[in-house]
């Protein structure tokens, strides 16, 4: 289990993809399961592209949720990515 550093570049693991069905909540489809993406989790996952670093993702989220505590955004994003990594849904490079 690992925590992302500012330079970590997260990417979705092979076979994991976001499904957008009109009128339905977005889903992150993974082998043998699916995660419902709502609000902040969708904002995070939609920025995982294998190019952006953790620091860049956090910066964009802090801009998007300007009313929220920036440190809390960083902490929650790190915790969420760590969880996705432990589930083998996200890989860190």
């Amino acid at each position: 289990m690992s925590r992302p550093t500012p330079h970590t570049v997260p990417r979705l693991a092979p076979g994991c993809r976001v499904a957008d069905n009109p009128g339905q909540p977005a889903l992150l489809l993974v082998p043998e399961g699916a995660l419902k993406l709502t609000g902040s989790s969708l904002s995070i996952v939609s920025r995982i592209d294998g190019v952006r670093t953790f620091a860049q993702i956090v910066e964009q989220l802090q801009a998007e949720f300007a009313g929220m505590d920036p440190a809390a955004i960083e902490e929650q994003t790190a915790a969420f990515l760590e969880k996705l990594s432990a589930r083998s849904v996200v890989r860190f490079a």
Binding site: E32, S85, S88, R91
Partner: peptide, 8 residues
Amino acid sequence: LAGRMRIE
């Protein structure tokens, strides 16, 4: 192997 290979 957590984060590399998931074992069920």
